[in-house]
């Protein structure tokens, strides 16, 4: 007697389970979105304040702090430094990362695997420790921290992004295409330029975008390797907040959010960023 009833009962219970699970996931997602967006929204709203303090909600709205950015020489210099560092970091990371991933994808040697792990390690190792270590390293070499060293250190932590996206693109690349190119008489360089690069280009571009962003808002490495002259934007903003609660930092943050959004939309359009990262 109990046998025919059992499936119905169980089905009933599963329905409840599924419903509550779905509710739970929806709640968690909403919470996650809230936590991700809320800080940015608060900063942007605050940046439009008319008052002289970082108060939320703002008592009145104005653009005075954005206007004030025009006179913020130090902040502008820091932003220019950050852009320069991010540009060179991206250029070098893309070049080295692409070259490394080509070798890694092509070889099955255990040494190459080891190199892969080594190149990826900055992603998991504490960047603070790496920043400190590189500062000691630079001094031991007899130098003082400067822009080239800052760029080099950024390259170390940004290469993994290029490596991952390019390797992912390379695994999608049909090796028969490379064989076809070779058998048609193409040199390795021609094969790379005409076949490999166009087909993995989006992966490389996605990695370049990530590397750029990672360099642009890197704090732990810059903290050690940036000095007065090479001060970068995130560090400068941090110091402004710490010393005098400068409202201009909110305006600068607003601009950074806008800048990032524009870059992301561009990356999505031209490189299909989210598809490359999947």
């Amino acid at each position: 007697m109990s046998t025919p009833d059992a499936p119905r009962l169980r089905r009933h219970r599963i329905d409840w389970e599924a419903a509550s699970l779905e509710l739970l996931f929806k709640a968690l997602t909403a919470l996650a979105v809230l936590f991700l967006l809320a800080p940015s929204v608060i900063v942007i709203l605050t940046s439009f304040t008319s008052s002289a303090s970082l108060k939320f909600p703002p008592p009145g709205l104005s653009l005075r702090w954005y206007v004030a950015l025009f006179d913020a020489d130090q902040m502008q210099r820091a932003a220019w430094n950050s852009l320069q560092v991010a540009f060179w970091t991206t250029l070098i990371s893309v070049t080295l990362g692409t070259a490394a991933s080509l070798a890694i994808a092509r070889s099955s040697s255990p040494w190459i695997r080891a190199a892969d792990v080594l190149f990826m390690s900055p992603l998991v190792l504490p960047a603070l420790a790496f920043g400190f270590a590189s500062l000691i390293f630079v001094y031991r070499l007899g130098f003082r921290p400067n822009l080239p060293f800052l760029v080099l250190a950024h390259v170390v932590v940004c290469v993994p992004f290029v490596l991952r996206t390019t390797l992912a693109a390379l695994t999608q690349l049909d090796p028969a295409l490379l064989d076809a190119s070779t058998s048609l008489g193409a040199s390795p360089w021609m094969t790379f330029r005409r076949v490999t690069l166009p087909l993995i280009g989006r992966g490389v571009a996605a990695g370049g975008f990530l590397a750029f962003m990672a360099s642009f808002d890197n704090v732990p490495v810059s903290l050690f390797l940036a000095d007065e002259r090479t001060e970068v934007l995130p560090i400068h903003l941090w110091q402004q907040i710490e010393t005098n609660l400068d409202v201009r930092t909110a305006a600068a943050s607003g601009l950074i959010v806008l800048f990032t959004l524009v870059l992301m939309i561009a990356a999505e359009r031209f490189a299909g960023l989210t598809r490359q990262l999947r």
Binding site: A176, L177, D179, S183, G185, V195
Partner: peptide, 20 residues
């Protein structure tokens, strides 16, 4: 002779046409 100097033409199983 390297593969690109042998003058061997290959038609691959999946044709391996350059998609781009």
């Amino acid at each position: 002779l390297k593969a690109n100097r042998r003058g061997v033409g290959i038609v691959f199983q999946n044709y391996a046409l350059f998609p781009h």
